[in-house]
Amino acid sequence: MADQAPDAPALGSVRTAERPVADQGSDATPAGQPPGAASAVPDRATLRLALVVGGLVLAVLLGFGLGRLSGGGGPTAAGGTDSALADHSHAPGAGAHSHGADQNTAAEAGGLAVSRDGYTLTPLAAEFTAGQAGELRFQIRDGQRRAVTRFAVVHEKPMHVIVVRRDLSGYQHLHPTMAVDGTWSVPLTLPSPGIWRAYADFTAVAGDGRQTATTLGVDLVTPGGYTPRDLPRPATETRVDDFTVEYRGVPQPGLTVPLDFRVTGADGAAPALEPYLGAYGHLVALREGDLGYLHVHPEAELVDGAIRFWLTTPAPGRYRLYLDFATGGEVRTAEFTVSVP
């Protein structure tokens, strides 16, 4: 998802400089000072008032600081930074809820830019021939244009690459390998002409150990005649090979809601689901129009036999969901269109 210097004062502490003052009444005049002159040493009543006011100010500041600490921000356990959903988890049975005004970035779609959060996705080739086996090669570069070579392992992989045509067809979920110079590569075949979108979903590790989770996107081109496919109508059930997959849950703008996916075989019985990428399924959500990429977070275990994810949709619109699940040693993908009013 910083150590304090040894000599630094604790949060909310105040260092004071002290000097000895002769014991005197509140109306006494310090020695050597003419009677009636303004004293540089405050009397006891003034000191008491100053301490009371200072205490109140300190309490307000300390309360604000503690509120900021408890309200989020900073690295998370899974390596995210300042993202409420970098490794967001929920107790089973939790209902729909909002993440608050200070966590709006959690609901923002990613993958809309080639550069974000100080990193740039740099493809080494962006043109492919339709139906011909090729290779996607790219680097992630930092603000000094240096290739990044340190990445955290998230969902069992240091890099997740999602490829889809701009009409949201042809979904592929790939896991490239990295060379010592920071160049990632993975075999890729784009089956039909058109403009395709490639997303790099990763958590970079800086030299000082800071981790930044982000998703970058870039277009890939496959020349040729292109006829966009109409997005299938919204449905809560679909078939993949001999399996039926259905989900329950109602996505709502700005709210995090559970979506439960249940898989049944041709005989109506639930197959034995196998862990995939650290859970019993992996879900990608893409927004129609700008192809915004949404992070969707799974429960590590099945919930009453269903694969549960937590989805936050930032705005109304139509979204395409891609559920990867594994059974019988094979990974399959179930696709859904969801309309968020």
Rank of each mutant, 00 (worst) to 15 (best):
P34A: 03
P34S: 10
P34V: 10
P35C: 01
P35V: 02
P35F: 01
G36D: 11
A37C: 12
A37Y: 08
A38M: 03
A38I: 08
S39P: 09
A40R: 15
A40Y: 11
A40F: 10
V41A: 00
V41G: 01
V41Y: 12
P42M: 06
P42F: 05
P42D: 00
D43I: 09
D43C: 07
R44V: 02
R44F: 01
R44P: 00
R44L: 03
A45P: 04
A45S: 13
T46K: 14
L47I: 07
R48K: 03
L49M: 07
L49N: 15
A50Y: 02
A50K: 01
A50N: 13
A50G: 07
L51M: 05
L51S: 11
L51D: 05
V52M: 10
V52P: 04
V52K: 12
V52Q: 12
V53W: 08
V53T: 01
G54R: 15
G55Q: 06
G55V: 01
L56H: 13
L56A: 10
V57R: 13
V57W: 09
V57F: 12
L58S: 13
L58K: 12
A59C: 15
A59R: 11
V60S: 03
L61K: 10
L62Y: 09
L62M: 00
L62G: 06
G63Q: 03
G63S: 15
G63V: 06
G63L: 05
F64W: 15
F64K: 08
F64R: 11
G65Y: 10
G65P: 03
G65L: 08
L66I: 02
L66C: 08
G67H: 02
G67L: 11
G67Y: 13
R68Q: 06
R68A: 07
R68K: 04
R68F: 11
L69K: 00
S70F: 09
S70W: 04
G71E: 00
G71H: 03
G72R: 06
G73K: 06
G73Y: 08
G73P: 04
G74N: 12
G74Y: 07
P75I: 01
T76V: 02
A77V: 00
A77P: 00
A77H: 06
A77W: 02
A78C: 14
A78T: 15
G79E: 14
G79K: 13
G80S: 03
G80R: 06
G80T: 03
G80A: 14
T81P: 06
T81G: 13
S83I: 02
S83W: 11
A84D: 04
